[in-house]
Amino acid sequence: MSNLSITGSQSTPAISGDWNAGILTMTGDSYPENSFDLFNQVIDWVEHFLADGKRPLSLELHLLYLNTSSVRAIMDVFDLLDDAHAEGHPVSVNWHYDRRNERVAELAEEFKEDCSFPFAIVAHD
């Protein structure tokens, strides 16, 4: 498997998966026309990574607005991480937000519920 690189647009987040470093980054808003197509690539990449030994995987999220199907896709990714974590796979999520936009932190908090793996909500100035 190789790196994942999807250019962002006004309605889709910029996504990059660094296979060697084990880091998946998503930045921006997400209300794509076809979120199934977009996030299938992400879920595929995560599944492949998790199937390839037990190297640590870290998600660095700088997400702002998500429409419903994007919320669902992110929850699916977290489910994958949860299962992997249960099998002793070192996975983690860092959800970054701008301190001026406290609501993003509230939303990240809601995503975090029921997640058993390390999940940090990180404020930035």
């Binding site: 419903t68 919320v71 669902r72 929850m75 509230e106 939303l107 809601e110 995503f111 029921d114």
Partner: peptide, 18 residues
């Protein structure tokens, strides 16, 4: 069911934000 409830909750929250 829990997942669906969570999805609706988060989605509503985003909508309020908008």
């Amino acid at each position: 069911l829990r997942k669906l409830e969570k999805l609706a909750r988060i989605s509503d929250h985003y909508q309020r934000m908008m």
